[in-house]
Amino acid sequence: MTMEVECDVDDTIENLQTELQAGTLAALPGMRLWSASEDYTSGSGTYEDKGYIFSSLVGIVKVTPAEGNKKTVEVIPIGGGAALARTGEIVTAIVARVTDRGARCELRCSGARPLTRPLRAQLLKENVHDKNKDRVDMYKSFRPGDIIIARILPITSLQCYDLATDEPELGVVIAKAADAPPGVNMVPLSWSEMQCPVTLAKEPRKVAKVAPENVRDLIEGNK
């Protein structure tokens, strides 16, 4: 199955402006929100990197007037912060390291609540897919820097959470190609491959089977 995604930057900014005016634009950690300029600056819940403003948490994007003619881009957290994740919850995590046996991750949000601090987690090879578990190739499923949606498995250690992406709706939601320009995310071509819209480089991933507009609903369902 192939997903068709519009990648034109001008169209993307126009769509963002429409959603911002309606107050419905939801953000995930690492999502590019706006071009940093003399008119737009980074506010709470965001950070600036190489000329762009990115979200640092799950929440609703808000643009507010600042000094002069400037405007501040902020992300307002959905609900209060959480100190720990709970078994069965959908979490947002950043992949830190990938080996042939699994991936080390940092949890950033539990359900719709940003965590008060990053938490350690691991995604083992046998928990990536629900079928053909012995044939999973971790290097073709995830890369460092990917943002994923996963489920918390029953807790067996207080030092590290165990994650699973063995459901169709779980997996990679945001990823960058190795040679991509700053701020450019790949788009899904299928549920196992993504492509950089600028360089056209293709990379394998375990893509979450969820449209971008449904990511918020998936997370909020675990509030």
Rank of each mutant, 00 (worst) to 15 (best):
M1N: 11
M3Y: 15
V5C: 00
I13N: 02
E14K: 05
N15S: 04
Q17P: 01
T18R: 02
Q21V: 01
A22L: 00
A22F: 01
A22G: 00
T24C: 11
A27Y: 13
G30Y: 09
R32G: 01
L33Y: 06
W34M: 15
A36Q: 15
E38D: 15
D39H: 10
Y40H: 05
Y40C: 02
G43D: 04
S44A: 14
Y47K: 12
D49T: 09
F54N: 05
S55P: 04
S55N: 08
S55D: 09
G59N: 06
I60S: 08
K62A: 13
A66S: 11
K71M: 06
K71V: 03
T72G: 01
V73I: 03
E74L: 07
V75W: 00
V75A: 07
I76T: 04
P77L: 10
G79I: 05
G80R: 00
A83D: 09
A83F: 10
R86N: 13
G88K: 09
G88Q: 01
V91P: 10
A93E: 02
I94M: 14
V98I: 15
V98G: 08
T99P: 00
G102D: 13
C105E: 14
S110D: 12
G111E: 06
L115R: 14
L119E: 03
Q122T: 09
Q122M: 12
V128H: 10
D134H: 14
R135A: 08
V136D: 09
V136M: 06
K140A: 12
F142W: 12
R143K: 15
R143T: 08
I149R: 14
A150H: 07
A150R: 03
R151K: 06
P154R: 11
I155K: 06
S157R: 00
L158D: 04
L158M: 08
Y161E: 02
Y161A: 01
Y161T: 02
L163V: 02
A164W: 01
A164I: 03
T165P: 13
D166C: 08
L170I: 06
G171H: 06
I174Y: 10
I174R: 07
A178C: 13
A178H: 09
G183H: 11
V184S: 03
V184W: 11
N185V: 05
L189N: 15
S190F: 10
S192L: 05
E193R: 10
E193Y: 04
M194F: 14
M194I: 06
L200P: 02
V207P: 04
V207I: 12
A208F: 07
K209S: 09
E213D: 12
V215S: 01
L218P: 13
L218N: 13
G221Q: 02
N222T: 13
K223P: 09
K223Y: 07
